[in-house]
Design a protein around this nucleic acid. Sequence first.
DNA 1: TTGACAAAAATCGTATACGATATTATCATT
DNA 2: AATGATAATATCGTATACGATTTTTGTCAA
Lengths: 226, 226
Amino acid sequence: MLTAMPPSLAPIPKAAPQITEVIADTLRAEILQGRLKSNLPLRQDELAERFGVSKIPVREALYQLKAEGLVTFFPNRGAVVAALSSAEVDEIYAMRIALETLALRRAIPHLTIANLAQAEALLAAIDQAQAIAQWGELNWEFHALLYQPANLPRLMEWVRILHINVARYLVIFLVGLEYQATSQREHRAMLEACRQGQIEIAVTLLEAHLQAAANKLVAFLEQRAA
Amino acid sequence: MLTAMPPSLAPIPKAAPQITEVIADTLRAEILQGRLKSNLPLRQDELAERFGVSKIPVREALYQLKAEGLVTFFPNRGAVVAALSSAEVDEIYAMRIALETLALRRAIPHLTIANLAQAEALLAAIDQAQAIAQWGELNWEFHALLYQPANLPRLMEWVRILHINVARYLVIFLVGLEYQATSQREHRAMLEACRQGQIEIAVTLLEAHLQAAANKLVAFLEQRAA
DNA sequence: TTGACAAAAATCGTATACGATATTATCATT
DNA sequence: AATGATAATATCGTATACGATTTTTGTCAA
């Protein structure tokens, strides 16, 4: 029979941990950490054996990562870890600026004292972070925290995807450079503007913050390409 | 053996028509035309039998549509055609405005005479369009044409996804209203600003154009919900 | 009649198996 | 020796089959 109702409508979207999700999360983390490098072929049999499952959940995980832009498919010829050109980095940062400034604009009026305190704590944690993987993670948490009160879940999900697409390249020049100090100065200036409710100033700072990262990354990639 | 090279790197991303794609395209079209209504359960066996294939390509097609926001999955309980709340419509249009104004801004300096002529022709075609499905299609082609010269493929793909998420609701109040005439006036004003290279004016018009549609749609959905 | 519990049916998620396509290796021919 | 055709191998894409979870149906007691 065809019931026209959704199966009891929503309050139980949680359930057993799907194998597909576990595989996708694992591969995503490895790509972000740079353990799986660009253009590396991802063979389905190989991954299936490694995870101790069949190819089907592996395929679905790979397609999920394709939707996130982390892997590229060649029909009948397999998948590889996606590579980013400098043009794509430019495009991704342009989109991040467009979407994240929107999020921040809508979030600031709803920021609570608790949010601001959490953000402050995250900045302190970033200052003391040791591993670069940790740095990237905390960095993203800080940004996400400021956007969260906007209550725009789809936008957040897409911004997260854009972020992870550039994150694995970002960590490259984070080590040994003074970029971290500059970034933290910008973070604190943004947070201060948020605290005072100065939307336009905060948005301008965020845009400059992202554009600076974009310029560094594009320059790095174009140098490496030559 | 593990070759570290991509399988002959790219020039052949075309191949046999994947069954998964065919199914996804068909279901997407049916959702857009309103033939598959919101919250309708999409059973895998049923679809597999209908298309004469097994469940696996059906599953992959459904997951692709999930990534596009057209279906919602409930683990171990199946998928349904996604429904949009007025809050989600507001969010989608906010994202469209952010991304499409970016695209237009970057596209205008690269617009050619040929582009402008094509756009003009599309407007004429819209004026004479009979079926509403055709109207929606042409409408999107007009917008896409203006953004194309920006050369931002990822952004275009995401804008397309946002568009199809609201398109199926748009057609509802397009019939029998004077919205079409208003929309065409706005289109022609935008096109004229593009022709004269007046970026800020064109962007402002586009934003107003999208916001007007958003307001109408949100009002419609909230009325229907009550 | 109503509620709770249990059995049955339906649907999903995954493993196994097989055919299709692409890539690599072999060999004949110029 | 180089090149083109052909066979062998590897990998992907899909069908079939089965176990797991969920929903529904049926039964019984209060």
